[in-house]
Nucleic acid binder design. Structure first.
Lengths: 208, 208
DNA sequence: GCTTTTGCTGAACAATGTTCATTAAATTTG
DNA sequence: CAAATTTAATGAACATTGTTCAGCAAAAGC
């Protein structure tokens, strides 16, 4: 029965077509302008068709969310060759921050928006997030075992580090760092530099 | 001219009436169910009336946002009596976290949602946020001057601490910590404990 | 008492996510 | 190959949303 195989393949291709169009539209025009009608028009299908491939908009967001995680995981993977775990940990932080600045909309999808997580609750867990987090966790674990860091609780340390960079990045993405513009510093105050410098300081502080 | 004074007062009262109804509705039914028609019905006015007091929904969000900041500032103010700045810094963190867990919707409004910041761009800056942040900043400054902390850059330290707790709290609010449920830990894994313990660890680490 | 200003109305508009009866095409069956 | 059946896609329709605006009634000014 080659036919049902082909059908399955076509179904996946169609799903991918929709997701690609959605991502392109999302990156081009932003969150609010990403509409199902717009996506449908872009791929030259009727709006209702999307519902044959996705239960609702949340599920489409989830698919985009997974795609975004693959992009970040690629960046992380490029660091596996670094032998010194402390060095790797450092780079990991900077890659994470750089990714957020380069792809703010994707970061939103991955770590801030509610939508993709609604779809997750009804399906399997948050595997893509888990996978990326484990990269950090494993590196921290290695540092802990080699006693390169202060403290010995891998869980707490990894979580704290993630939270630290996520906190900085998400405050920036949500314009909460505009606060620093008023603090007497120069007008076009560089938030990216503030973040990177602060992370650098914290990492130094945590070294054994 | 007592009349225009009364008018001005009535205008403010009406604004407050709308904001109160909006907050009540927001806390009762959540972000998505907060609709202008719903608010109008609640205060027994026509939908269009709200636009006589607020330019758009974002501006209403901004007013709610300011109200929320007053609530947090009250909590912070209760800590002014603590003399030891390091102790105050500790408590500050826990009050912040507790506030977020007790009032997740308000926290959203204050630090995660985009809406209230749109209204800010067109008006004066983010004064309410600035005020609350300065509370933290001043406490850190005091610790730095008394050499109670490692490091001497008040700006970096205060920003890092804010980011750390905000990161933890916002990851939790956006269900990104569900990841830890799969990590083999117990099912009803206590996120609040994880957060508070991690912050505790980090604070110890930063003590001079 | 007439005119002007003000506050409020609620119908109307455009846009959204979502559903579903209907149609067209592909596949299976006889 | 023709008929029957299953599948894919349509696009009009529905309920909601934020927002606007011509009209209207009451208050204020003269």
């Amino acid at each position: 029965m080659g036919i049902i195989q082909r059908r399955e393949r076509e179904k996946l291709e169609m799903r991918q077509l929709i997701v690609s169009a959605a991502i392109k539209m999302y990156l081009d025009e932003g969150y609010e302008k990403l509409t199902l009608r717009g996506i449908a028009k872009r791929i030259e299908y009727a709006p209702g068709t999307i519902y044959l491939y996705f239960k609702d908009k949340d599920e489409l967001f989830h698919a985009m969310h997974e795609w975004a995680f693959e992009r970040l995981f690629e960046k992380f993977s490029a660091l596996t060759h670094i032998h010194d775990p402390l060095d790797r940990l450092n780079k990991l932080g900077f890659v994470y921050i750089q990714f957020a600045f380069d792809n703010p909309e994707l970061y939103d999808l991955m770590f801030i928006l509610n939508e993709p997580m609604c779809a997750i609750k009804e399906q399997h867990g948050w595997e893509c997030g888990f996978k990326v987090y484990n990269f950090l966790r494993a590196t921290v674990e290695e540092c802990v075992q080699k006693k390169l860091l202060k403290g010995d609780n891998t869980e707490f340390i990894a979580f704290s580090m993630w939270s630290l960079v996520h906190g900085m990045v998400s405050l920036q993405l949500r314009n909460r760092l505009d606060l620093f513009d008023k603090l007497g510093v120069s007008e076009g105050f560089d938030k990216e530099l503030l973040i990177k410098s602060s992370v650098e300081m914290m990492l130094k502080l945590m070294k054994a």
